[in-house]
Design a protein around this nucleic acid. Structure first.
Ligand SMILES: [Mn+2]
Ligand SMILES: [Mn+2]
Ligand SMILES: [Zn+2]
Ligand SMILES: [Zn+2]
Lengths: 147, 147
DNA sequence: TATTATATAAGAATTATTCTTAATTGCAAG
DNA sequence: CTTGCAATTAAGAATAATTCTTATATAATA
């Protein structure tokens, strides 16, 4: 769950960033953004299309692809790293990390202060400008580990 | 560069793992593996196809796709995480980390003992079986940072 | 050397994604 | 509140990456 005020805050940041990048506020964009914000599963374009489609039967798949890609470009959402299957997106642009199940492909968020505060190695700093550090833990989720 | 003995060592591990998984030693497999081992750029299937094709004009693209995928399955190589473009592979199965340039998509290896020894958070251990930890630094390589 | 399960080449098929185009619409200016 | 127009959209075609199908070839084993 997410509080109403946090919801509102998020929405006005969204509107502000869109305006900054000259993106018009269309019902498609609002709906797609809200649907992604609700999602906890780092969904792909088809997933979002299916969810949005219920409320908005005329939306096209292309619009979902285009819109999510645009949102990622302007930084209101993030694309998730993966292994070359369909692209997946993350509404959470704050600092956090991922658990990836290698069997069912679930991606779950987690927080860790150690991981948040990793130092960039000196040797790297000389040859590379680091924008962000990602830590990914790969393995098996509880359900998949049971089998 | 890689020493002759290390080369030989790698090759016999490769043969051993293939045997363990009942994979026949075909010239295609040997060539593809050797070409990937030479590569420092985490190449994709098309890249490897082009390189192999010079020495082995009759090889099919499908074989390269199938073979690299099989190699990753049995763990002689790794698939590299990415953002949904073409798959890329890594001959280095040892512990190391990656610098990813967001502009030119180059991927460069680096070593760091801190990153090698990250502890898995307690909270995670309860709900997830971790196979491996990946640290990825994203940003701009020297060339791309200049512009 | 004969047997057989695997692997391969070629091209068709599939999946994910992007492009093209004509029609629609958000929104700023009057 | 209208108008004007650049930005956006739906629809379907097109493309790119990858996988599948099948007939032929071949590595490994006896
Ligand atoms: Mn996340
Ligand atoms: Mn590497
Ligand atoms: Zn799982
Ligand atoms: Zn670069």
């Amino acid at each position: 769950m997410i509080s109403n005020s946090a919801q509102f805050e998020l929405m006005s940041e969204f509107r502000a960033k869109c305006k900054k990048h000259n993106l018009k506020m269309t019902p498609q964009r609002v709906t797609i953004y809200q649907e992604l914000v609700k999602a906890k599963d780092h969904p792909g374009c088809e997933d979002i299309f299916e969810r949005v489609h219920k409320k908005f039967p005329d939306i096209s798949l292309d619009t979902v692809y285009r819109t999510l890609s645009t949102f990622a470009d302007i930084g209101v959402i993030n694309q998730v790293e993966g292994y070359g299957e369909a692209k997946r997106y993350d509404p959470n642009t704050g600092r956090h990390h991922h658990l990836r199940c290698l069997k069912c492909n679930s991606i779950v968020d987690f927080q860790d202060t150690t991981f948040n505060n990793l130092r960039i190695p000196k040797s790297v700093e000389k040859s590379f400008v680091v924008n962000n550090i990602k830590v990914i833990l790969e393995g098996l989720c509880k359900e998949c580990a049971k089998k």
